[in-house]
Amino acid sequence: MQQYDFFTQQWAEQAKAFINQGHTAEYKATKLQTYWDWIDRVSANYSGTLALGVTHLPDGPGLETAFIHLTFANGQVTGARAVSAQEAFTAEFVLQGKYKEWHTLMNGFEIGKGIMYRKLRLEKGDVLEFFNRIFFFVEALACLPKVPTHFPETAA
């Protein structure tokens, strides 16, 4: 299976596809329908931008960063681009974490719990506005581990 380098343009396009595809019926059955209804209500009205940032990538002295900029229209991802830090910070929300934390999350650590444990931090954006849509964001990010990912530490 083809693998995509973490946080590259190709990876961002895969992320977009998997977020838009959503979760399987099997996964959805683990939570009550009221939870998914809440997310549907929130996402139907959500158009905005969310940037994801990774810092402390393993190659180099440990401060390398990478960013993905996602555009949402009515809950669907309509744009996904690998961008510079400067461009990332034009997004409404910037959610950022160290590479080792992302790696844990990409290996299936529960996203909501990861937010509560500050594995990712909101570096930009109104905290209340973010939490008004929290489970929509959580479930969108929970699609990311589906992207077949080639992580930098395993680079040849």
């Binding site: 939570k31 939870y35 529960e110 909501g112 719990k113 937010i115 509560m116 444990y117 500050r118 931090r121 909101l122 905290v127 209340l128 973010f130 939490f131 929290i134 489970f135 959580v138």
Partner: peptide
């Protein structure tokens, strides 16, 4: 004990973590 806790627990408590960061 996390298995007994609802996923939505991280709503109010995630908010607390992020308000603390702010």
């Amino acid at each position: 004990s996390w298995q007994h806790v609802s996923e939505t627990f991280s709503g109010a408590f995630g908010l607390l973590a992020y308000l603390g960061d702010a």
